[in-house]
Design a protein around this nucleic acid. Sequence first.
DNA 1: ATCGTATATGAACAAGCGTTCATATAGAAC
DNA 2: GTTCTATATGAACGCTTGTTCATATACGAT
Lengths: 197, 197
Amino acid sequence: MGMARTQGSHSDITGPRIRKAALGLFARHGYAAVSMRQIAKEVGVQAGALYNYTPDKQSLLYRLMQDHLKDLLAAYAALDKPTGPEDALRRFVGFHIRFHMERPDEVFIAYMELRNLTPENFSEIEALRRAYEDSLERILQDGQNAGLFSVADTKIATLAVIAMLNGVMTWYRTGGRLSLDEVEQIYWDMVRRAVTA
Amino acid sequence: MGMARTQGSHSDITGPRIRKAALGLFARHGYAAVSMRQIAKEVGVQAGALYNYTPDKQSLLYRLMQDHLKDLLAAYAALDKPTGPEDALRRFVGFHIRFHMERPDEVFIAYMELRNLTPENFSEIEALRRAYEDSLERILQDGQNAGLFSVADTKIATLAVIAMLNGVMTWYRTGGRLSLDEVEQIYWDMVRRAVTA
DNA sequence: ATCGTATATGAACAAGCGTTCATATAGAAC
DNA sequence: GTTCTATATGAACGCTTGTTCATATACGAT
């Protein structure tokens, strides 16, 4: 009974649409504040149908974070080999700003919703994040060893640089006063001066 | 009926206890994930009693943020007058790190729960935050005018410095490898180098 | 000792939650 | 054109949610 709805074989379409809807809603309202019914509504489907694509709400969040961080690591690994520590740092700054700027929702979620992961899921996500941070710390350590950089503590400097770069996401809006190139240049100047010997 | 409970005139005790409990729970689990009953349980009271102290859950969050930011502005305003832009910046870095380190829960909430404020409450909180950021921007602008600092954009530099300093809260733990003095020194070094001409 | 009031209880409300499942349907395969 | 299966519905489940309110109690003042 009831009006007919579109049904049938939409598996490889509905799945991504669900994740996309969840991504936007989680980013805008927070994981805990978003219901499965809201996600379903955005996709144009009933709540029960979501469970053909995710075992539960938690897994939906986990998958979004995991996909994001794996993409991040893969994209960074695909960069050209740098010519030295300073070049590597410059590339890192540019890569980080651009990659994150293209994915504001993913970044926001991977940042804010860590506490809503189960302990096991949290550990896995944390490992991915640490792998990324380690690649920056290696750059700083190499530069330090080569006498090019001068930081009191490479671990702290790593976190300080990343925190500073992440700050871009809180204020930058496309079409604003500054182009992405300008932003990249400004941040690179500050980072370089902050760590250079 | 039922077992007797402590009752009577506890107004000026219960109120702060409720806010303290809410503070801890909001910080640990997030505003949306915490129920009024959980807060009440932590205080040792029934959920209904909370409404003698707050008109609703939203106001509880708003009050916590407002108190925090007003404390922040008052404490900063009470600092000694600096001798110049560089001294002012050094003081700002030290003040910011220490003040925020003493209030990890408040900082976390004022940061993460902005989206759970009503639009009106959000505007008020944003105004307070901007007032604080403006005091840093004024320092940078003064230093820039005096030829002591050299930043491409004072607004961006302001946000970059604050983002960098806020990063401390994500990793620093009392009793860890570094003392607060050391942390302050390390960050001051990086900030100074990032903005100095 | 009695009263008055501030403060708490505990039950109730309607609404919404995540999740499950029997049932229906649409499209692919033969 | 019939069958088979993947995909969807929509109702239902037990629970929790924020909030209200009539009622009870304990303290401060008289």
